[in-house]
Amino acid sequence: MTEADVPTAERISDDAFFALDTANQLPSAPAPRRRSPEHRAAWTARTRGFLGSDPGGSWVAERDGEVVGFATGFRREEVWCLATFAVRPGLQGAGIGAQVLDAAAAYGDHLPRGMLAASVDPRALRRYHQAGFRLHPQLTLRGAVDRSALPAASDVRDGGPGDLAWMDELDRALRGGPHGPDHERLLAAGRLVVTVDRSGYAYTNGAVLALLAARDEDVARTLLGACLADAGERYEVPHVTSANYWAVEVALAARMDVVAQGFLGLRGMAPPAPYVHHGALL
């Protein structure tokens, strides 16, 4: 992938995921929507960032000189992550996805661990399984928040650049690699909340939990409670695996809804916990 390919990749991604979400919409879920201009800009900036930090990790597939599929991946010490993978609607099932995914995955073949966030697309799930990834079902927690049931959050504060070093150490312990340059992208998308004793952190924008990492479940509950206390009318916590049932307990106590949605694909590792991963930055 080159910088010139990024706008086309973004359109393919938006088309593919909108079609998938429309075909698999749950009765309780909001109606699928196209990306907003702000979301498109953030997606484009993030992908260009991958080209800078991991120039060998992102690939496109062409047909008749036109980009028809792509995969973006990156390495963070001992873990390889697949950020995004999509094929133009109408061309799935023709072998394009398998080729471009293989090219991106080769960038992390030598690493002991791998992570990816998967949709419910059965074709993609088969490819991930064939690539050696074990698929762990995920829950999404969403709805209006009953703040009367939230745990106390007196030991948290706003974080900043001075916290990134210990946050990266926590990430190494939980998933095998730091977020490093990805913290800049996470900070741009919302607020960083950290515990006073440097035992956990979370990124939130008041509507969605982007990422949460903690030393233990008590710390994780405190951080999630702080995010929910600062929530708007509704809040969403995506990407919750069964290893992180503490998040389900907090959400149910706050009278939020629980729905099954997507998978976490892992190679060479168990589901990180206490940890709620980001959809693209893992």
Rank of each mutant, 00 (worst) to 15 (best):
G176H: 13
G180V: 02
V194T: 07
P181T: 10
L211P: 06
A202M: 03
N205M: 06
A189M: 02
T195I: 03
S199H: 13
A188P: 06
L211I: 08
A189I: 00
A213L: 11
V193I: 13
L187F: 09
G190Y: 06
A189W: 02
Y203M: 01
G200K: 09
G200N: 04
R191C: 05
D182V: 06
E217H: 09
G177T: 09
S199G: 15
G206Y: 04
G206A: 00
P178R: 09
T204G: 00
P178M: 09
V193W: 05
T204L: 03
S199W: 06
Y201I: 02
G177W: 10
R215Y: 01
G200L: 10
P181S: 05
L209K: 13
V208H: 10
T195S: 10
A213Y: 05
D182A: 14
S199E: 07
H179E: 04
E217A: 06
A207D: 13
G176E: 10
A213V: 11
S199F: 02
E184A: 14
Y203W: 15
A213G: 15
H183A: 05
G206D: 00
V193G: 06
L174G: 08
R185Q: 12
L186W: 14
E184S: 11
V208M: 08
G177R: 03
L209F: 00
A214R: 11
G180C: 07
G176P: 03
Y201M: 10
D197C: 09
D216H: 15
A214Q: 06
